[in-house]
Computed example of a mutant assay.
Amino acid sequence: MQPHLIVFTDLDGTLLDHHSYSWRAASPAMAKLAANGIPLIFNSSKTAAEMRQLQSAMGIRAPFIVENGAAVVIPAGCLGRREEQVVNFGADHAQVWRALMVQRESGAPFRGFSDMSNAELAGHSGLGEAEASRARQRLGTEPLIWQGSSQELGQFRAALEHAGLRLLQGGRFWHAMGRFDKAEGARFLLQQYQEQHPGQPMVTIALGDSPNDQRMLEAADIPVVIRGLNSDQLHLPSQKHPMRSLKPGPEGWNECVLNLLFEYGY
C-alpha cells in the first residue's frame, strides 16, 4: 500500500529564500504535492497572520503551526473542521513579554519585535511594512535581536530557563518562548491525519535549516536539512539518516521533495 505522505516545512531559509522570501524555485515540487493531495504544513517562527497571507499567495489550504510551535491553526474545511480551530501550547505572549521585561530591568541588552515600529522591523528583516505588521502579531513568542556579548547571552538564556522559558536561534532572530517546540504541533497534526485515514500507513517528511528545526526534524520519519546559514549546527541522530540538500533555500527544497516523491511512487 502506498503510504500517505505529510510534509512539514520551515519557511525562512527553507521553503522561502533567505534574502528575497521567494518560494518560486520550489513551485514544481509544491505543484506535485498539491496534485497528489499531500498536505504541505508550514511549521515556522512566523505568525498566524503571516502564514494566512502566504497560504493565500501560494493557493494552499492546510493546517499550519505558528511561532515555533506556540499554536496549531486548523482552517475551516481542513481535517473535518467546520470552523477554524486554534490549539495553543505553552506560555502565551503576555507571559513571555513579562519575563523579558524582568531581564531588561536587570540590564539584559536586547530589542524585541514589540519594541519596534513596523518601519524599524522592516529595516531589520527586509520585510515590507505591511508584512512587518503581520510579523508583530504574536500568540506565544517574542523574536529579538541580541545586543550584548556571548557571555551575557549565556546568562540571559539561563535566566529565561529559570523563568520557565526557552531561547532558540532562528535564521535571523533569537526567539524567547515557552517550553514547547515545533515537534509538538507536528505530532498533534499527525494524530489528526491518522484519525482521518485509519489503517493507512503514514510517512512524515520534515524540512528545516536551523537549530530551531532540530526537534521537528528528529520527530519526522524523513528529516531533510536544507543548506543555510546555520544548517551546519543541526546534528541529527545517525539512525535517522537525514537527507541534506546541496542547494540552499527553495532550490534545495524543490530537489529534495521531488526526489522523495519519486522514491515513494508519486
Rank of each mutant, 00 (worst) to 15 (best):
M58W: 11
L40K: 05
A71W: 02
T47R: 09
S45D: 12
A49E: 11
R61E: 03
M58F: 05
M58E: 11
I60K: 05
A48D: 14
E67N: 12
E50R: 10
Q55Y: 00
A57E: 15
F64E: 10
A62N: 14
R52F: 07
I65W: 00
S45E: 07
V72M: 05
V72E: 08
N68T: 03
N68Y: 09
S45I: 11
Q55S: 06
A48Y: 00
N43C: 15
G59S: 10
R52V: 00
M51F: 01
A71L: 09
N68E: 13
V72Y: 05
F64Y: 15
S44Y: 01
G69I: 03
T47L: 09
A62I: 12
E50Y: 06
S45F: 10
R61D: 04
A70R: 12
V72K: 07
T47K: 12
V66Y: 02
S56H: 13
A49W: 04
F42D: 01
F64G: 05
P63E: 04
E50K: 08
I41G: 03
A49T: 09
I41H: 01
F42R: 02
M58L: 15
A62S: 15
A57H: 08
R52H: 14
S56E: 13
N68C: 12
A70Q: 12
R52E: 13
N68F: 11
E67R: 04
E50S: 07
Q55E: 11
M58G: 13
Q55N: 12
E67V: 03
V72W: 00
I60P: 10
F64R: 04
G69Q: 10
L40F: 15
P63C: 02
P63H: 10
N43D: 12
S56A: 14
I41A: 03
A70T: 08
L40E: 04
L54S: 03
S45C: 14
S45K: 14
K46P: 08
A49D: 14
R52D: 14
Q55W: 01
R61T: 15
F42Q: 01
F42C: 06
G59V: 04
T47G: 11
G59E: 03
M51D: 01
S45W: 06
S44F: 02
L40S: 03
A48P: 02
A62F: 05
A49H: 09
R52A: 07
N43W: 06
A49F: 00
A70D: 11
T47C: 12
V72H: 11
P63K: 00
A48M: 11
Q53V: 08
G69M: 13
V73A: 10
A70W: 07
L40I: 13
G69Y: 03
G59N: 08
A48G: 07
T47S: 14
E50F: 09
I65D: 05
A71C: 12
F64I: 09
F64T: 02
Q55A: 08
A62W: 08
E67D: 12
F64W: 13
K46F: 08
F42I: 00
L54C: 02
N43H: 09
P63Y: 05
A57I: 01
G59H: 08
S56Y: 05
